[in-house]
Simulated scan of single mutants.
Amino acid sequence: MTARRSRRRSAAYAALALGLAGSLALTGCNSHSSKKSKKSKKSSFSSSKSKKRKIIGGGAAAAGAGAASRRVPDCYPSTYKVTFSQQTGPKSHVAVKFKNSGSRDCKLYNAPLLRFDNAKKPLPLLQGTPGHLDGTRITVPAHGYAYAVIPTNTAATKGNEQKSVAVDFMGISAGSPTHGPATVSFAEKRLHISVGKSKVTNWSSSIHGAQLAGGVGK
């Protein structure tokens, strides 16, 4: 009887030990799984934050690039971009036309600086003094035009026929360098341009606007 009880007790203890071991193993497994889940959540949150930072950073970079691309450069003269033509009659004048042959907009300030036949000083401006800006600025669209006018409707302003003209473009301020010169030969182009004691208007987006500014509009 004593031997049977002893065996039963041993069997009961063994079953209890197995039960405890299984419970501990399950608890450890659950704990390990919980830790993994927390780590996974942290990793996912960190990844999400990183993606947000990248998106925000990328957006700022794109905005900066967009602002840079929107900066409008100055226009530059050349012998094929700047052309001259003489208009006769009671409202005689010389029309100066600039063509923006580029694929981007460009800026013009005040008026063209024109030195006919190697003159030391450029033609005076109707709306200011050469080298001193009055705030006039126009944007010439890609493949667009700008105009200025030199009134020659009196004998004094018409003067003599010129052989050439050196063209400068004014900069953003009085102290900044002009963009030029580009020398246009009237003889090579078979043009007859007569200019005397005249003045030149500021740039305008239309020939009609330039003619009105010069007092020779229709």
Rank of each mutant, 00 (worst) to 15 (best):
M1K: 02
T2Q: 06
S6E: 12
S6T: 08
R7C: 03
R7V: 07
R8L: 14
R9Q: 12
S10W: 04
S10F: 03
A12C: 15
Y13T: 14
L16H: 14
A17D: 15
G19K: 15
S23F: 01
L24V: 15
A25P: 00
L26P: 11
T27V: 10
G28P: 13
S31A: 12
H32W: 13
S33K: 09
S34M: 15
K35R: 10
K36E: 10
S37V: 07
K41L: 14
K42M: 11
K42R: 14
S44L: 03
S48G: 06
S50N: 07
R53D: 08
I55Y: 08
G57Q: 15
G57K: 11
A61W: 08
A63H: 02
G64S: 10
G64W: 05
G64P: 03
A65V: 14
A67S: 15
R70N: 09
R70W: 06
V72P: 00
D74C: 01
D74V: 02
S78E: 14
T79E: 12
K81C: 00
F84K: 02
T88P: 05
T88N: 12
G89V: 13
G89H: 10
H93V: 01
H93G: 02
H93W: 01
V94R: 02
V94A: 03
A95P: 00
K97D: 03
F98G: 07
N100E: 04
N100A: 09
N100V: 05
S101K: 12
S101H: 09
S103W: 03
K107M: 09
L108R: 08
Y109S: 05
Y109Q: 08
P112A: 06
P112G: 05
L113S: 05
L113N: 06
L113Q: 08
F116Y: 14
F116W: 14
A119G: 12
P122D: 07
L126I: 13
G128V: 04
G128F: 03
H132M: 09
D134R: 04
G135C: 08
G135K: 09
R137H: 00
A142K: 12
Y145E: 13
A148M: 03
V149E: 10
N153C: 00
N153F: 01
K158P: 02
K158M: 11
K158T: 10
K158A: 09
Q162Y: 02
K163M: 14
S164G: 04
A166Y: 06
F169A: 05
I172R: 12
I172M: 12
A174F: 05
S176H: 14
T178A: 02
T178V: 00
G180Q: 01
A182W: 04
T183I: 00
T183E: 00
A187K: 10
A187D: 07
E188T: 12
K189Y: 05
R190C: 01
L191G: 03
I193T: 01
S194G: 02
K197C: 07
S198W: 05
S204K: 01
S204R: 02
S206K: 13
S206Q: 12
H208P: 00
G209T: 07
A210N: 04
A210K: 06
Q211D: 15
Q211A: 15
Q211F: 12
A213D: 13
G214N: 05
G214F: 03
V216T: 10
